[in-house]
């Protein structure tokens, strides 16, 4: 694949795809909450731009709707919601200590290589999708998962979740020019509801555990000694 043989717009798609991947890496190692939210918004914006470009190149006008949807949801509503929550919960200046950040980033790089590997059988079928964009979309999804696994605050996990969804959306756009509109609307609806439910959970977590550090959540497990039941007193019948 000769990069120079592609049209200008197709080259632009690849550049923006690379930037989307870059934002994923930034999120992976960003310990502070507020910049994390901003980076997530940037990723959404880049995604919207790529979608609009693909719409332009491929003559699929319904992709403009997807791009607009992304813009409203991923750049506007969800980051705004998370930002508001971070202020309400007084954690906008909190930093999370990431254990072994360099290992984490190396692991992320490994995931990118792995994505290129699994993209091989897909690429030969596709007209528009270049190897780069498909692999990037898989990588963004897997990196989102890595964020959820490696990070300990609830906020970072939510952002990892949403970033995974970004990767999936990106995969649909570059491989099949987006899903049918009704499915895309349904997915967008689910994502919106999910972000609201996550917001509700932040308050529950803070009320019960006094922090949003989900590593406190380790009460339920399979142990041989009797389970600690903090609510045992409450369960007793009057």
């Amino acid at each position: 694949m000769e990069l120079t043989s592609l049209g200008l717009y197709s080259q632009a798609i690849i550049v923006f795809a690379a930037l989307v991947l870059f934002t994923s890496f930034v999120m992976l190692a960003q310990p502070r909450i507020q910049p994390l939210i901003y980076t997530f918004a940037w990723q959404g914006l880049l995604l919207a731009v790529v979608t609009a470009l693909v719409a332009l190149v491929s003559n699929h006008p319904h992709l403009y709707i997807s791009a607009a949807l992304t813009l409203v949801l991923k750049v506007g509503l969800i980051p705004w919601l998370l930002y508001r929550l971070s202020i309400r919960l007084n954690m906008n200046y909190e930093t999370e200590s990431i254990t072994h950040p360099s290992m984490l980033l190396l692991g992320g790089a490994g995931l990118v290589v792995f994505s290129y590997f699994i993209a091989v059988p897909i690429v030969h079928l596709s007209g528009l999708a270049t190897r780069n964009t498909i692999a990037v979309s898989i990588a963004v999804e897997l990196l989102g998962m890595l964020i959820m696994i490696a990070r300990k605050t609830a906020m970072a996990q939510v952002i990892g979740f949403m970033s995974m969804e970004n990767g999936l959306f990106f995969a649909a756009v570059v491989s099949t020019y987006g899903m049918p509109l009704i499915v895309e609307l349904g997915v967008a609806f689910d994502v919106m509801v999910a972000s609201i439910v996550f917001g509700v959970f932040f308050f529950h977590l803070r009320d019960s555990f006094d922090s949003l550090d989900v590593s406190h959540l380790n009460g339920l497990s399979e142990t041989d000694e009797a389970m600690p039941l903090p609510e045992a007193a409450e369960v007793e019948q009057p």
Binding site: F161, V197, F201, H204, L205, P230, E231
Partner: peptide
């Protein structure tokens, strides 16, 4: 997490994620 006990919230969070 209807009962809002710490363990129910933990369970719901795990379920969700």
């Amino acid at each position: 997490s209807l009962y809002r006990t710490p363990s129910s919230i933990e369970a719901a969070w795990k379920y969700f994620v």
